Amino acid sequence: MLFTQFSADLAYPTLVANVLPSYLNGFFLAVLLGAVLSSFNSLLNSASTMFAFDIYKTSINKNATDQEMIRISKWVGTLIALATFFISPMLLNAPNGLCDLIRKFTGFFNIPIITIVLMGVLAKKIPAIAAKSVVIFHVFAYYLMV
């Protein structure tokens, strides 16, 4: 299969189409969808749990019971899932492909998180405001550079 314009997003499908025997296409699709849905489910569970414990329990309702935390976590997970269903079709319009878009988005948070972890390991005493400042400064600085 030959494409007229090369795109990084088409590299993997081209490899699969050219290398994988046609009778294994269904099996490969099942494996691929299983991996994608597993990752999506992990993201939903992590995000909703972090919201429930880090935002809801600490800022909104300090006396929340476990049942209430579970209920809030389910609602947040549902809202995130619905948001992704509406946002995901827009990813087709990524100008340089999906791989480049993901790389840019992860760059917003990977570098400051690594910096915060390294400073936490190497330094004896750093205030919490320093970590928050690093994240906020990096997001703006990264946006200006990209």
Rank of each mutant, 00 (worst) to 15 (best):
I80S: 02
I102G: 03
T106H: 09
V121E: 02
A123P: 03
V134M: 09
G34I: 07
P112W: 00
S73I: 02
P13E: 09
F85R: 07
L118Q: 02
V19M: 09
S48D: 02
L118D: 01
A35G: 14
D9N: 12
F105G: 05
M90Q: 15
V117N: 06
D54S: 11
V139R: 00
F28K: 07
I136Q: 04
A64K: 06
L37P: 05
V19A: 10
N25K: 14
V139P: 00
L144D: 01
I60N: 08
G34W: 07
T106E: 07
D54N: 11
T78G: 13
T78I: 14
S133T: 11
C99Y: 12
P21E: 05
A17H: 09
G34L: 12
S38P: 03
I60P: 03
F137D: 04
F28R: 05
L98M: 10
N25R: 10
M119T: 07
Q67N: 09
L92Y: 13
F137H: 05
W75D: 04
S88T: 15
H138G: 01
R71M: 07
F6Y: 15
A30I: 06
N45C: 13
S22T: 13
L24H: 09
R103P: 01
Q67W: 04
K62D: 02
N93T: 08
T115H: 00
V135E: 05
P95H: 00
N96S: 12
N45G: 10
N110E: 14
P21N: 06
N45Q: 13
N41G: 14
Y143T: 14
A81W: 00
S7T: 13
I111V: 14
H138Q: 08
A35V: 09
S133Y: 01
P127G: 06
P95L: 01
S133A: 09
P21I: 03
I116N: 01
I136M: 12
L79N: 05
V134P: 00
Y143S: 14
L44W: 04
M69N: 08
F105H: 09
F86C: 15
K125L: 08
T49G: 03
V135K: 02
N63R: 11
I60K: 10
Y23N: 12
L24F: 12
S39P: 01
M90S: 11
L122S: 10
F40A: 12
K125E: 10
A141E: 06
L29D: 12
K132G: 14
Y56W: 04
